[in-house]
């Protein structure tokens, strides 16, 4: 599970370089996210624009990552492809996360 990061003053962007977050990589994803969010700014934007498919295990891993960061920090999700967005919508997890259809939109929001 390859993640790349870019840190600005007020937020860190974590970009998923794989096309799937599923049961096969859910634990690996959780571990990688812990490493990337352990330190750094309170706001993390998870860039999902490369991700074409996510299953309930992948969804659970993203939820776990947000819980690990704690209530005082923010995990925003950006660049959701339609199939990925659907999983968040059906499970009502779209009400739990801040979702942005594009990475640029999220960056604009948090840079202000």
């Amino acid at each position: 599970m390859e993640l790349s990061t870019k840190t600005e003053d007020s937020f860190r962007i974590v970009s998923v370089q794989d096309t799937r977050i599923d049961a096969a990589v859910a634990i690996e994803f959780k571990d990688a996210m812990r490493q990337q969010t352990d330190d750094g700014p309170d706001i993390v934007i998870l860039d999902l624009s490369q991700v074409q498919f996510i299953d309930s295990s992948g969804l659970g891993a993203i939820v776990a990552s947000m819980k690990y960061m704690g209530a005082d920090r923010t995990l925003a999700l950006a660049g959701l492809t339609p199939t990925v967005e659907k999983v968040f919508r059906l499970t009502r997890m779209d009400s739990v996360f801040s979702l942005f259809s594009t990475l640029d939109g999220a960056v604009e929001e948090f840079r202000a």
């Binding site: 309930s56 819980k67 704690g70 999983v87 059906l90 739990v96």
Partner: peptide
């Protein structure tokens, strides 16, 4: 936040 479910979505979907 701490009580958010991390599983149990499979059969629902």
């Amino acid at each position: 936040l701490d009580d958010l479910p991390e599983g149990g979505f499979g059969w629902f979907l």
